[in-house]
Structures are given as structure tokens and as C-alpha cells.
Design a protein around this nucleic acid. Structure first.
Lengths: 150, 150
DNA sequence: CTAGCTAAGTCCGGAATCTGGACCCACCCT
DNA sequence: AGGGTGGGTCCAGATTCCGGACTTAGCTAG
């Protein structure tokens, strides 16, 4: 007679990374957000500048709106037309986009250099780094450790 | 008689964000990388802790190794066994994971708070922010502008 | 008035991917 | 001999993706 006595080994982690990726963990979703950051909130334009299938873009936008990252706002009645804007939560994704961009700039840029360069308001080309809010030092892997792990 | 005279309107942007997402723009890929950051380089364990289908995980790992983010290293002959390690390029993804985590901590944590807390070596709970390397100020949306846009 | 254009989608059918579960192989331990 | 572990592969059905055509409503040029 067998009894199930072995505690089933670890379930998938509860994790903010995983949760976030449930919403934006897909190419077209993040590229849609990138477009809005660059000032394009119009459907057709987003499709053109990302290369996403119209169908897929429509689906992603529904999710992004549904999870409070974008807002669908009417900018014209007669003909009724909409455009997408960032919410506060959406604006908080800026660091995600920037760190992705930085990685690509470093590791995937050809000899011609990165295709898009940003300039900070301080006048220097933007090269953003992650620092600890408390001590101001750059955050380096190996210098952090898990404190609570539910 | 019609002549094609309209310049075909903008192609999808050449963009480091898009290029990066071609490699890691998918949930399981980034969760695999998260696991390695957390110290898990073993296939079975990665499958368990992410919840990915084994097949999919295997496919993602192949891509990650192929694009130089992970390295597949043998840690035992007899039986021959492998584990995955971060390359330098892989370590450079740390900010991406951290910004995703931060977004989830802020916008998706329940009343119980975020499931995982990190502590910086300075002793404070880690709350990482993006700053301009040049002036040290936090990078805020609206305070950057595109300089070159090829 | 008619043709053609734009914006914001929807609809479609075939192709590609994802998924959960079973299976495999080599070795170890009891 | 039986069971467990680790790192996968194989499968078949379900889902998603994709590109292209179509839709709707108004605008604009001839």
C-alpha cells in the first residue's frame, strides 16, 4: 500500500518577473509599448513600425489596455478614431525598454553602431545604468542576495 | 495608367529593442535566465521552477546558448551531465531582469508584498533605479530625445 | 457623383509553435 | 531487481501566428 508522502517538489516560483512577463513577456507587446514611448499611439503606424501582424497587434493592445499599461483614447468622432497613451504604470516600463535597448546596443550592434541613440537632458548621450537607490552604487550581479523568498 | 510613385512608407524600425527581443523576447527564455541568475543551472530544476514545458525549455536553452547568453558546461562524465552558466553577455541581462522584477513588485504585488526581496551589499533592500551615467540623475521619460535615428 | 484614400480593426485558412505527458538512456543506490 | 535522477526527445492535439483580403465610415480630388 502506497501513500503519497513525498512533498511535491518546488512549484514554479512566485515571482514578480514571471508575473510581469505574463503581460509583457512577448515581442510585440513590448514593441507596441516602445512605439508609444516614441510617440506613436496610432494603430496603423504601430503595425508599420513594428512589423507585427495587424491581428496580433490588436490582441496585444487589448491585453495592454486591460492590464492598465495603455489607455485607449478617442481622438476623433466622425470618423471615430482612437489612439493609445501610456498610463502611469505604462510609463514605469521605461526602464525595461531602456535596459533591453542597452543590451542590444552593446551586444547586437554592428560596426555602424546602434540604430538609435538617445540623449539625456544633461546633454550627454544616454547610457543608463542601474544603481541602488539607497547607496547609489551600481547594482552588480553577485552583490545582491535574496532576503525573503515566499 | 498608374505609376507607383509613393515612397513605400516606413519599414519596421531598426532597433536594439527589437533585436534583443528576437532572442529573449519570450517568457520562458527570460525565466530560464532568471533561474541561472538565482543559481539554478540544471535543466530539471529550471523546468520545475519556471513551469515551462520540457520541450520548450530545451528549445529556449538552445537559442540562449547559440546567441552567447548561456554556456552549456559539462559537470560530470559518467553519467554525462550538463549545466548552464551565464556568459558575460548573459550577466549583462541582469538589469533587464531587475527592471522587470521592479515593475512587477510595484504593480502586481498583492497586499502580501512582493514574493522575493533582494538585499544590496550595502545592507538596504534593493530598489534599483536607472540613472544617466554622465550626470547621475534618474532617467525619466520625457527627458531624453532621439539623436540619431537610422 | 465616383474613385480612391485613411484609420482601425476583423476575418480567414494554412503554417508554425506550444503543451502535457510518455518515453529513453545511462548511471547510481538499496 | 527495482526505483530514482538528470537531461533530454517524441508525440499528437490545441493554440497561436501569420499575411493578406476585407470592412466600415468618413474625407478628398477630379
Amino acid at each position: 500500500m502506497l501513500v503519497a508522502m513525498v512533498a511535491v517538489s518546488a512549484q514554479p516560483r512566485e515571482c514578480s518577473v514571471a508575473r510581469t512577463l505574463e503581460i509583457v513577456g512577448e515581442k510585440w507587446a513590448l514593441l507596441a509599448v516602445r512605439e508609444v514611448f516614441l510617440g506613436n499611439g496610432r494603430f496603423d503606424e504601430m503595425v508599420r513600425r513594428t512589423g507585427a501582424p495587424r491581428d496580433t497587434m490588436a490582441a496585444r493592445l487589448r491585453v495592454l489596455v486591460g492590464s492598465g499599461i495603455l489607455e485607449r483614447r478617442q481622438y476623433s468622432a466622425h470618423p471615430v478614431r482612437f489612439e493609445y497613451h501610456l498610463t502611469d504604470a505604462g510609463r514605469d516600463l521605461y526602464p525595461v525598454i531602456l535596459t533591453l535597448m542597452r543590451w542590444g546596443d552593446r551586444h547586437l550592434a554592428g560596426p555602424a553602431g546602434p540604430p538609435l541613440e538617445l540623449e539625456h537632458r544633461c546633454g550627454h548621450p544616454l547610457s543608463a545604468q542601474l544603481v541602488c537607490e539607497a547607496c547609489g552604487d551600481p547594482v552588480v550581479i553577485g552583490e545582491t542576495r535574496a532576503v525573503r523568498n515566499r
